[in-house]
């Protein structure tokens, strides 16, 4: 699941080496945490959160198929 966020984030930031994605599971489902260079934070969030929202939609597609729930946190 985290590969999705990893691929997209690396493709749109200016310093791909600083992209760190972790995946864990808690009671509410899968939690994916995305960490990027401070300079790139705006890029992975997007205007009015559009990029983050689009990533969440794709994550939801995959999670739903697996009967799971997923949250994306940008830190």
């Amino acid at each position: 699941m985290k590969e999705i966020v990893e691929y997209i984030a690396r493709a749109i930031v200016t310093t791909p080496d600083d992209v760190k994605v972790t995946e864990e599971t808690d009671a509410g489902g899968i939690v994916i945490k995305l960490e990027v260079n401070v300079e790139d934070k705006g890029r992975v969030i997007g205007k009015q959160g559009r990029v983050a929202e689009a990533m969440r939609t794709l994550l939801r597609v995959v999670a739903t198929k697996e009967g799971n729930r997923v949250r994306l946190e940008i830190i």
Binding site: I8, R50, V51, E53, A54, M55, T57, L58, R60, V61
Partner: peptide
């Protein structure tokens, strides 16, 4: 989902 995919 399709418009998110297209946007990305």
């Amino acid at each position: 989902a399709l418009s998110s995919l297209q946007y990305l």
